[in-house]
């Protein structure tokens, strides 16, 4: 029970210094969380056991070679290792589906050209022009936030810093901008779809 009060960082330090029992404590303390995390993604007990084992082999090797430098964050570090191994597992097992053309089956039944037709492109261009015109109708403060967010892809934090208002104010202006846009669209019965 006394082990429960020893922080992870100290157990890691003890293990690096040669106390093998410290590893047993660390595994016992976190096995459920780590294994549960792996199993939640893999849904196969045997493969989850393999990944759990590979995770700790990496942990052991890293600690024994003194390459670990994240004191105090043992569990997130181990979780990250297991996450990477899960990704590797899915990469390895991912099979590319293969289709062959037969008399009953045409490859073109599952292939399609998603690109827009000339007419579709013209409609999209027109919608964009119309939308820009509507945005011009918005009050200056709302327009500014909307343009920064939608056209310049800025975060609300960046917008708030640049415009000198709080994040909440920027969010509020965005909300009003969208509400006003909807109002204008409804009022003039503008169709913005293609």
């Amino acid at each position: 029970m006394a082990d429960l009060h020893i922080p992870d960082a100290l157990l890691v330090k003890n293990y690096v210094e040669g106390n093998e029992n410290a590893l047993a404590t660390l595994i016992k303390r976190h096995e459920s969380k780590i294994y549960g995390f792996i199993y939640s993604k893999i849904a196969d007990r045997d493969i989850s056991n393999d990944i759990f084992q590979d995770t700790f082999i990496k942990v052991i090797k890293t600690l024994k070679s003194n390459s670990y430098n994240e004191e105090g964050k043992f569990l997130p570090w181990v979780m990250r290792i297991s996450h990477n191994l899960i990704v590797d597992h899915f990469r390895k097992t991912k099979k590319m589906p293969m289709y062959r053309e037969t008399e009953e089956f045409s490859i073109f039944s599952i292939m399609s050209d998603d690109s827009l037709t000339i007419e579709g492109k013209m409609i999209v261009d027109q919608v964009e022009v119309d939308l820009k015109k509507i945005i011009e109708e918005l009050p200056e403060d709302q327009k500014e936030v909307l343009v920064m967010r939608m056209y310049q892809d800025m975060s609300f934090k960046e917008i708030s810093e640049l415009t000198g208002v709080s994040i909440n104010t920027a969010l509020g202006r965005m909300r009003y901008a969208l509400m006003n846009l909807r109002k204008i669209i409804d009022k003039h019965q503008i169709i913005l779809t293609n």
Binding site: E20, I27, Y35, Y39, S40, Q53, I57, I60, K64
Partner: peptide, 29 residues
Amino acid sequence: KGLASKDLKPKKEVVSFLLSYSQALKIVK
């Protein structure tokens, strides 16, 4: 209900292997 909500644990053999592996492993830099 998430799969992770169950109290899952790795096999005892896996943990035992890891502890033995750790005891046997020595890394010389």
